[in-house]
Design a protein around this nucleic acid. Structure first.
Lengths: 234, 234
DNA sequence: ACCTGAACACCGTTCAAGT
DNA sequence: ACCTGAACACCGTTCAAGT
């Protein structure tokens, strides 16, 4: 009875929402790998099997976590032209996903989209259509955007922490430069406005916007030219 | 002794190479999820711990599997202009990765590139440089390419098998259309030259080349304009 | 010195036994 | 009827015991 009391005080009644937000918080501060059914249950002061009343299985848990993050994306700004409206929205998605560093990886891993995900994608498609894009062009343009609709790109060189010692760092760079001269060259260029000789020099935000704008401008051109999949021209 | 004989006949001496190729073959025909140290060992007629003499741990095994796939990419064609040379090379990478459907996902999941991966990336960077691209532009262009250097794109709508019954299929589509009209619209467009009403209609190869060419043409324009990260013009 | 079976510390999920 | 502890079928990896 006293035991009952303690338990009652400690846990608010479990709900799907509470489970999902606890999972997001756990992933945020301890990494997504530590989100196991057992771990999460413990975090909630609950027996593992209790979670299964609110999510069917781990897959559904991950879907729900994605929904929480996607729910943080701002609604479309109205009154803007298609290009800046889409640009803004995608950058808002980027902000949301940045708050939860595990989320891009989890989004990519989901085998099928949830309704929340479909809502977001549907609205982006709608923004191209509202901008006058043909159904045909919009279709291809969505494919070309790919995971960039979510505001992220798979990094080819995930930033790994540099060794503390500047001597080992320099030695590492010399080895890189001798084996992979072209990579070393562009890595140097990235570090131009930075103290370190290599790496950490890439400005992710700049790179993302560079690529996004390149794509949006490309879309714009095709649209103006009246592009269709059966040949250019109207 | 007879036991010894049987074992001796069954297993060629284990080597790193044999381990990696067995892992690739196992992933090819049974899915990457079934590549566990225990499963792979059994496939090779060996005790699990025997693998650890050839790969330090599972991470290194996955790196090695990626190296096998990347090793199948054709060397650069010479004598071509940068654009068609890079285009060809990336499409060759696409062919290699298509032969091993698990590989794009595994490549994305690797925390740091292997020497084999760096060799490939280095050579692509070199091809832009040989085409006259500045170090600066080449750097940004590599980021913009992202995982498309490997010949794949993260699909937003992974093709899920359609229900057999055409009636349930039509009902599913009606529901999609009422909740996500814009998505339904472009899905319809994709299916134009196809029997099915939705899905399976996207020609992955077309979409990939559409986006790749859009990017390469964009790069070309910037290059011709003498683009630099500190403003346009020379 | 080499090899390996058993063990450790985990998983997600099932299911039967308990209330 | 509801809840849950124990169990099942897995993981990757360590380590000590055996040859």
């Amino acid at each position: 009875m006293a035991q009952q009391q303690v338990d009652g005080a400690r846990r608010a009644p479990l709900s799907r929402d509470r489970v999902l937000h606890a999972a997001v918080a756990l992933a945020d501060h301890a990494g997504v790998d530590s989100v196991s059914m057992r771990n999460l249950a413990q975090e909630l002061g609950v027996v593992p099997m209790a979670l299964y009343k609110h999510v069917a299985n781990k897959e559904e848990l991950l879907d729900g976590m994605v929904d929480v993050v996607v729910g943080e994306i701002d609604p479309p700004a109205d009154g803007a032209d298609w290009k800046s409206a889409i640009r803004q929205r995608i950058l808002s998605a980027r902000r949301a996903l940045e708050r939860h560093p595990w989320s891009s990886r989890v989004i990519e891993s989901r085998p099928k989209p949830t309704p929340v995900v479909l809502d977001y994608l549907n609205s982006i498609v709608g923004m191209f259509r509202a901008g006058g894009f043909s159904v045909d062009l919009t279709h291809h343009v969505m494919h070309a955007l790919g995971s960039r609709v979510w505001g992220f790109t798979q990094e080819l060189f995930p930033a790994s922490p540099l060794p503390e010692d500047p001597e080992t760092q320099a030695a590492g760079f010399r080895e890189l430069a001798s084996r992979y001269p072209h990579i070393a060259e562009i890595a140097m260029a990235a570090a131009h406005d930075d103290e370190s000789v290599v790496g950490q020099g890439c400005d992710d935000e700049y790179e993302f916007q560079f690529a996004l704008d390149l794509l949006l401008d490309g879309f714009d051109n095709l649209h103006r030219q009246g592009w269709t999949s059966r040949g250019t021209g109207s």
